[in-house]
């Protein structure tokens, strides 16, 4: 990796951010999606136990992430892709997407946590574990959804493909996240927390490795 590669990655991240800020409807629609979903949940379930809180949190997280990530590659028009293809390498593109999607999912996760705390209740006992869970969740889901989004966008019929492909793949990551945030919510004992975190990191590592290998192949189409 040369200095130029880092400059390219930084440039791509800036470009994504610029597009995001220019097309404000995506940001506002996700904001509205999160707030209204949480509001509806709080109205339907008057009292929410920590266990249910944990489960609903991750369900809303996945579905918001699906709709937020869907545009990750579909927004790239084909002629623009061709242009990038000549300018920067595929590894730089996928790394930029990972970083950008990680931060946007992180922002989404924080927004979701805050709205859960405001509208529902606050069962969080250990904030460090909770935000560690959200961060690792954003990382894992970001990696999987980025690759699946690139697969789905080259497949055309992307909205249905995306949810069919992404949700089974994301389950192992979610199962670990449920345990990590479950520990933070005092549902589970923290005996296995180090094990869970290191395994989740290992899975994410494998996923990133496989993505770096696969993306150049997909990108060529």
């Amino acid at each position: 990796m040369s200095v130029k590669a880092f400059a390219n990655i930084w440039f791509l991240i800036q470009k994504d951010l610029n597009i995001e800020l220019r097309q404000r409807y995506i940001l506002t629609s996700i904001l509205l999606y999160v707030v209204s979903t949480v509001f509806i949940i709080s109205k339907i379930l008057q009292t929410v136990s920590p266990m249910l809180w944990n489960a609903i949190f991750w369900v809303v997280f996945i579905f918001t992430a699906v709709s937020a990530m869907m545009k990750s590659f579909t927004q790239e028009m084909s002629d623009r892709s061709l242009y990038y293809y000549y300018l920067v390498g595929p590894i730089e593109i996928i790394l930029a997407k990972f970083i950008y999607n990680f931060f946007s999912l992180m922002a989404m996760g924080l927004l979701l946590s805050v709205s859960f705390i405001i509208f529902i209740n606050n069962p969080i006992d250990n904030y460090f574990y909770f935000f560690l869970g959200v961060t690792l969740g954003a990382l894992g889901i970001g990696v999987i959804f980025t690759l699946v989004s690139s697969i789905a966008s080259s497949g055309g019929n992307s909205a249905t493909l995306m949810s069919v492909l992404a949700i089974p793949l994301v389950l192992p990551v979610i199962l670990f996240n449920l345990q990590i945030t479950g520990t933070a919510l005092n549902i589970l004992q923290d005996t296995a927390i180090v094990n869970n975190i290191s395994l989740l990191l290992a899975i994410i590592g494998i996923l990133i490795g496989v993505s770096l290998f696969l993306f150049p192949q997909i990108w060529r189409t």
């Binding site: 697969i151 497949g155 055309g156 793949l169 494998i206 496989v210 696969l214 192949q217 997909i218 189409t221």
Partner: peptide, 26 residues
């Protein structure tokens, strides 16, 4: 769901590799 043969081959091959590495930890 993919009608185009080349696209189907590329996408399903890459998905297959991805899926295999996910089910090992599972």
């Amino acid at each position: 769901s993919l009608a185009d043969a080349d696209k189907r081959a590329i996408i399903s091959s890459s998905y297959n590799i991805f899926a295999f590495f996910i089910i090992i930890p599972l």
